[in-house]
Nucleic acid binder design. Structure first.
Lengths: 355, 355
DNA sequence: TGTGATTTCTGTAACGATACAGTCCGAAGG
DNA sequence: CCTTCGGACTGTATCGTTACAGAAATCACA
């Protein structure tokens, strides 16, 4: 073929197509994006020519530059990205975000905040806004996100100035768990938290624990104190990661101790499920010999054996709300963030202590 | 302040910064992207000026257009995007993809293929390549993806010409489950599959079932036939969606029937867990009165009561492989796709039939 | 037939960045 | 003193698209 010689088949662009079809580039663009702006006849002809030339359609990069819109929201995950998928609470939240974005026709870009890529992700992400999940104030990604000067909404702690935050009142929610156990008649307690192990000091502050988890621990202890229990008498153990296995290992010393508490609060359901495993492994019966309360109400809490009493916080709805709030900001509407309700769901893992 | 008048504070660009710092735009660009190309002194000065002007750093849209790279891979989800998060098998696969991409410093763009956005997502996605999950050949998104002329890798069925496919041999894998049950001595079988309910015809083909699930069903039946069981004697019921609850409902008729089979194959673990629920709901003891085998080996299979015998297929590794293959293509290397191994994991849900 | 209104299409000018191919300059080496 | 070399920086030309303003052609209707 003669035509296979010549310039080495430059990638076709709008203009290539326009020239070949004998119309202006604008008309080709309209053929793809605003079918109502040109006659059906021309549109068909243009698209035919495009197909013949192997034109893949308007390049999103050019379009994005010109329109100053990416129709994409970035979700920044505190933990290394892959790990987020292993955490059912995070998955439920993402599920909600994805739903909210999909309903609005927006795509979701997942951004790791750790890893070998020195965080350039955030600087280079083609997005119209960010949803950030529980980011520590000093984290390098914080500066990157705020530096982009794009709409942001944050989930969990801490608060950033001028950034709407979505999240529950962890201290109050944890207090519900404590009151439930007090009402059942428990007097000796343990806590499995996330982060550094250690005991609470007199003010109920446990050092080295994630902020939101810290609020859960201190809220739980404060409610106990209001019920006449000395916070210093409560043994607090820490799991290094939020996995069932880490919860199991952290709880082993608790449930095997001679002076075993009769009630344990796991600051996440995943950890609480690990407590159930630990109890089973040493022959301690739940809820007969030990009551266990979790936090989050993930799907597995309802199907575990025994099923888990927990503080429900509708992670899915929070995700959807996060999407709505960030999209409102993108659209120039200031969104108000309603408070998120929590509710104690009593299931099979709590009962009166054995007398 | 006098300077707050004047033009309404145009958003600063590379050139704004360059002019203010008395250098060329190229130098500003280098200050951000190639620190080794200029003196430390100039770099600091440029970045200082940028900060003063409130310059948010090089705009990803411009950069992406010029470099013709997005450093992002799009993942196309068959099901409506949000639903994918509810499916543990899909989550495990995504987990693997995310890991593979994060290791290579790439971001992950999640794309819905359904919803109210008429699939424009795929055409507008700023990505260097796609990973598609189990897309039916006639699906509108298929044309969009192939039309982009970007690297693609597909997971599951069907195969597309020129597109590397990652997936297991479902028929052979399902046969392992069948042989396990035959060896235990079972002679009456049921299947819970995904898609339209219906009975197998003589050739073992069940109409209206997803392709990969169809392969599991027919592979299972073929292995039974090889063991002397008439496929027509096997009752096949269908769940409309891959959820534990749908599996429960689909299995109810099976386990409650007078001529209840002694062994049931769930084509996914999620459905098989639903079968366990159904058995429990009518007082049928697993594995004493009923053996149940699943497929996938999701996390919940190991922790269910009883734990689930299943065909393991390392979904995580397949995700990571998908990432590697598509990135290889982006880099111009042709990747070869190794076969994926499956393995029968025998746990507590299978036993010899009650005599 | 004239006068708008409507439909259909075009020309131009950005959008903001980086690749590429230099230029300039001081220091090292002879 | 002249050459050579490497580091630091610059100028220009795109990358591919769409917003905007308006022109030309067609139509409706008195």
């Amino acid at each position: 073929m003669a035509e296979s010689a010549g310039p080495p088949a430059a990638r076709p662009t709008l203009e290539t197509v326009a020239r070949a079809a004998g119309v202006s580039p604008m008309t080709v663009s309209n053929a793809y994006n605003r079918p109502d702006q040109l006659s059906e006849q021309t549109r068909v002809r243009v698209l035919d020519v495009a197909r013949e030339l192997g034109y893949p359609g308007p390049d999103p990069a050019g379009r994005s530059l010109r329109r100053r819109r990416a129709d994409t929201i970035g979700v920044l995950l505190t933990e290394q990205l892959p790990y987020a998928f292993a955490d059912p609470g995070m998955v439920a939240f993402l599920h909600g975000v994805a739903t909210g974005l999909a309903d609005a026709g927006q795509a979701l870009l997942l951004l790791p905040t750790e890893g070998n890529a020195e965080f350039a992700h955030v600087r280079n992400a083609l997005v119209d806004g960010f949803v950030v999940t529980s980011l520590a104030p000093g984290h390098p990604a914080v500066a990157d996100v705020l530096g982009r000067r794009l709409p942001v909404v944050s989930w969990g702690y801490p608060r950033f100035a001028g950034v709407p935050r979505i999240g529950v009142d962890n201290a109050r929610a944890a207090a519900k768990a404590a009151r439930h156990l007090l009402e059942l008649g428990h007097t000796s307690f343990g806590i499995v938290t996330l982060g550094a192990p250690g005991s609470a000091d007199s003010s109920g502050v446990v050092p080295g624990v994630q902020l939101s988890m810290g609020a859960r621990v201190s809220g739980f202890l404060k409610a106990l104190a209001a019920g006449g229990i000395d916070p210093a008498s409560v043994t607090v153990v820490g799991a290094s990661r939020n996995t069932r296995l880490d919860g199991f290992e952290a709880a082993r010393s608790l449930v095997a101790a001679r002076l075993r508490p009769t009630a344990v609060f796991g600051v996440t359901d995943v950890l609480a499920l690990g407590v159930l495993d630990a109890a089973a492994s040493v022959g301690v019966s739940v809820p007969k010999d030990l009551s266990v309360v979790g936090f989050d109400d993930v799907a597995a809490a309802a199907t575990s054996v025994p099923s888990l009493t927990t503080v429900s916080q509708s992670l899915f709805d929070q995700g959807r709300l996060a999407a709505r709030v960030v999209l409102d900001q993108v659209a120039g509407r200031e969104a108000e963030v309603p408070p998120i309700r929590t509710e104690l769901v009593v299931r099979g893992s709590t009962a009166k202590p054995a007398s």
